[in-house]
Simulated scan of single mutants.
Amino acid sequence: MSDLSRTVFYDLHVELGARMVPFAGWEMPVQYAPGVMKEHLFTRESAGLFDVSHMGQVILRGPDVAEALERLVPVDIVGLAEGRQRYGFFTTDDGGIIDDLMITNRGDHLFLVVNAARKEADLEHLRLHLPEIEVEELTGRALIALQGPKAEDALAALNPAVREMRFMDVADVELAGASCWVSRSGYTGEDGFEISVPNTMGPRLMRALLESPAVQPIGLGARDSLRLEAGLCLYGSDIGETTSPVEAGLNWAIQTVRRKGGARAGGFPGADRILSELETGPARKRVGLLPEGRAPMRAHTALFAEAEGGAAIGEITSGAFGPSIERPMSMGYVPADHAMEGTTIFGEVRGKRLPATIAPLPFHKPSYKR
């Protein structure tokens, strides 16, 4: 793994007993001594601390920067208030998804957090299509996430001001002597915070948070099972350039003002397809699946309408055992006429077709502070 990048927390991960693995060009902790299941449950019950510094942090500056970014995303950026954050996605000319990202209005500029594996493609996309906008990749800041029902108490011990924040609020907060950009958001379905911190102060902040008995370090393994229970998409698995936002069930992220008949409708790549699917429905849909038994149906498992015969009608994109729901869970795509909740379909596992029931998402109810 000598050619992999390391975050500023690498030495601390090793000190804490992490098992390091390659991930999106980085050497990252997949788990610590307790293991994925215990780390998952600890996050649901207390507060898990994640290193997500591999993700890209980008600043956009320039004239009418919100209007400019709306040329690339089907999201209301102009109406995003200062100190607020919004989920969005870059779309292709065919209506697929180049990447999903978080967008923050920081007053005189926009702050984006993009996926690690898509960072270079995103930067190129922004610079190509927004030549009048300054696109700055931040390389001097780390990113950590504190997630779980005790996250507020743990972070408030360092600065009580965070108690006033609600879901998707963003603020400048002093933490353990570091000037941080804090958002009340995350990727687990739990209440929590994501914290952008200068690299030089990152390990100090992480150690300060870990002094609390309510906080433990959590690896990427539990992060994946937590987001799957929360019904959240993973880029490259559940969404990608061949998937439209409407197929993926991300309609909620496309505000009325950007839809047909809205004041700023269309004007983004793939608008014809996306706006049409919003009106008439997509040909296929992302669904939740609960397989029978204890064995997960994992990514690339073929899905069939019948227990025997017939061609595959879809495929699983993510699958794992859900520690909080105590059963296997999956997400995948099926034709719209097979997507009704309660429908039984079949996944082919080791040559056998096993039943799974289409279930509502998320599998685990979120606990965001609205």
Results as ranks from 00 to 15, higher is better:
Leu72Ile: 09
Ala320Asn: 10
Phe89Cys: 07
Gly314Ile: 00
Leu126Val: 07
Ala142Ile: 09
Ser2Lys: 12
Thr242Asp: 15
Val73Gln: 02
Gly95Asn: 08
Leu138Asp: 05
Ser5Arg: 15
Tyr187Trp: 10
Glu137Ser: 10
Gly293Ile: 04
Asp169Asn: 13
Ala248Gly: 05
Tyr333Glu: 01
Arg44Asp: 04
Thr242Arg: 11
Thr280Ala: 09
Ile345Gly: 00
Gly347Asn: 02
Met297Tyr: 06
Glu134Trp: 05
Leu289Lys: 00
Ser318Met: 03
Thr104Ala: 15
Met28Asp: 03
Pro131Ala: 02
Asp108Val: 07
Lys285Asn: 13
Asp172Cys: 09
Glu277Thr: 03
Glu45Ala: 14
Trp26Lys: 03
Leu16Tyr: 10
Glu134Met: 12
Ala18Gln: 02
Gly83Gln: 04
Met37Ile: 14
Ala33Cys: 05
Ala142Val: 10
Ala176Cys: 04
Pro74Val: 04
Ile133Glu: 01
Arg141Thr: 11
Ala161Arg: 15
Glu174His: 12
Gly177Leu: 09
Glu308Phe: 03
Met168Val: 05
Phe90Pro: 01
His40Ala: 07
Pro282Trp: 02
Pro217Gly: 03
Ala339Trp: 02
Arg264Ser: 12
Met201Lys: 15
Met168Asp: 10
Leu232Phe: 04
Gly319Lys: 01
Thr7Glu: 06
Asn159Cys: 12
Gln216His: 12
Pro269Arg: 09
Ala253Pro: 04
Ala222Gly: 00
Leu101Phe: 07
Arg223Trp: 02
Glu341Val: 14
Gly79Arg: 10
Phe90Gly: 00
Ala121Lys: 13
Ile97Val: 11
Arg223Gly: 00
Leu49Gly: 08
Leu234Asn: 08
Gly177Thr: 07
Asp238Arg: 05
Asn159Ala: 10
Ala33Asp: 14
Asp64Leu: 12
Leu72Pro: 03
Ala157Asp: 09
Ala145Arg: 02
Gly219Lys: 00
Trp181Arg: 15
Arg166Gly: 10
Ser46Ile: 06
Ile144His: 07
Leu354Cys: 04
Ala117Gly: 12
Leu146Ile: 02
Pro22Tyr: 06
Ala116Leu: 04
Asn199Gln: 13
Asp238Trp: 05
Phe42Gln: 11
Ile98Lys: 02
Thr43Glu: 13
Glu277His: 07
Ser244Asn: 01
Leu354Val: 14
Ile254Asn: 08
Met331Ser: 08
Ala68Ile: 07
Ser46Thr: 09
Thr43Lys: 03
Leu205Thr: 07
Phe90Asp: 03
Gly351Thr: 08
Asn115Gln: 08
